[in-house]
Design a protein around this nucleic acid. Structure first.
Lengths: 237, 237
DNA sequence: AGCCGTCTGTGCGCTTGACCACATACGTGC
DNA sequence: GCACGTATGTGGTCAAGCGCACAGACGGCT
């Protein structure tokens, strides 16, 4: 029996929104809204998950932390995806962490329900697999970008990817946290962000970043952003 | 009617080897051996695939080439995997290239046959999805490694991952090609390989690398190698 | 108003690796 | 055995980014 389900906004997550009405009606009793605070951990390295999460307004960062404490992000998920792919891919756990990068809501679904629905081979399976392929592209491009591009370009890519998954122009995010995501020093972010600010692309005050000029950001960013965006649009558009 | 199928060694590819006999018998008429030369392109950026390939002795590198010609590898596949995941994930194409990194054989299967079998939801689907999850881990770790580790460590990781997928201690591979895989300069590889050679870990003569002391390699490599290897063993072991 | 913790800016020395320019080796073919 | 093409070694300069140290600067709290 659903508890406080009525408020779940199906269309706030693009995967759920793309389900045929029949499928959605069947799953709807098993959906529940949750909200996440900044920095909250959705799952740990190797941790079992009881639910998958379809973010609506939250953004979740997938990152890996080394033995020495340094960390780097491999990808991020917002209202265009799902957190917990290991549950339908079959491995159960993933060797990384998922951390809330932007506070907000998500819709959760019991692992068992998801797995049963996935096994039916219907539209949900189709969507989840296509999303996973898009995620692979994102992670791949992160790998390439990490190798070949400057901190400033990567910061741009990261801000644009985040901005695409938000409905505001303001990100709540300190430079310290961004540095952890990008796997660079905090000072490196300060310098790169300073340049973007001088160029009038963003404004930056104590953990509040505002995107002022998206055009200019898109001129500064490397091709990696476009590749990822195009692939998401192609697969889930 | 199968043409020259009898020689296909099912057990040379771990995914095929893990199929129940029933499944394998059903698919066997649709399998055919192919062999690939070094440098051959299995698919191009955005290219349609008519077949999926289950490498037996070949190793295939997945890489992305930038507009300016520089390139970097996101992952590699050998006898523990399959090339062409876009065919069952649903996207059809991937925004990267697949290039033969070590000449050898593979078993090919028509895309349609694979897709029909995948849609049945049986053991092949199970295996392909688990492999895909392992691949995601590999790509993720490449991203992290690119960001945080030295060329020498990455060279070690790359050599070990390749070695695991070969049945010899000798790799046919110039420093120039390795540089393209790792996304670094050829001279960088020369220096890193020189250090490994001085340490007695490898020998290196004009495109012939020999692994002399795996122990020492494993001491030099970063934790990324272990994470990837453990995850492959866990998911496909 | 004043304090204090957090966030951001900046400067300096150092390392890594990129870019450039050659100098050698190896080895296949004539 | 010689020549030429390809593969590898090396050295110098330069820029990006790390590590460290510290100086402001903002904002919430008393």
């Amino acid at each position: 029996m659903p508890v406080f389900v009525a408020t779940a906004q199906p269309h706030a997550n693009r995967l759920l929104a793309a389900l045929p009405n029949d499928d959605y009606q069947r799953l709807q009793p098993h959906l529940a809204n949750v909200s996440f605070a900044l920095g909250e951990v959705v799952y740990e390295f190797g941790g079992q998950l009881d639910y998958v999460y379809f973010p609506t307004t939250a953004i979740v960062s997938l990152l890996y932390t080394m033995e020495n404490g340094s960390s780097a992000e491999m990808g991020l998920t917002g209202n265009d995806g799902v957190v917990g792919i290991a549950l339908f891919m079959g491995g159960g756990t993933m060797p990384n962490r998922a951390v809330i990068q932007s506070a907000g809501g998500a819709v959760k679904m019991k692992a068992k329900v998801l797995q049963d629905e996935f096994a039916k081979g219907g539209k949900l399976q189709y969507l989840l697999l296509r999303y996973t392929q898009a995620l692979i592209t994102q992670i791949s491009q992160t790998a390439v970008c990490n190798r070949l591009h400057s901190v400033e370009q990567q910061l741009c890519r990261w801000l644009l990817l985040s901005h695409d998954r938000l409905n505001t122009d303001e990100l709540i995010m300190t430079q310290e946290l961004i540095a952890g995501m990008l796997g660079v020093r905090r000072e490196g972010v300060t310098v790169a962000a300073g340049r973007l600010q001088d160029a009038g692309a963003i404004s930056y005050v104590r953990g509040h970043i505002k995107i002022l000029d998206r055009r200019r950001m898109e001129e500064t960013v490397c091709e990696c952003y476009r590749v990822v965006k195009d692939e998401f649009d192609r697969l889930l558009g």
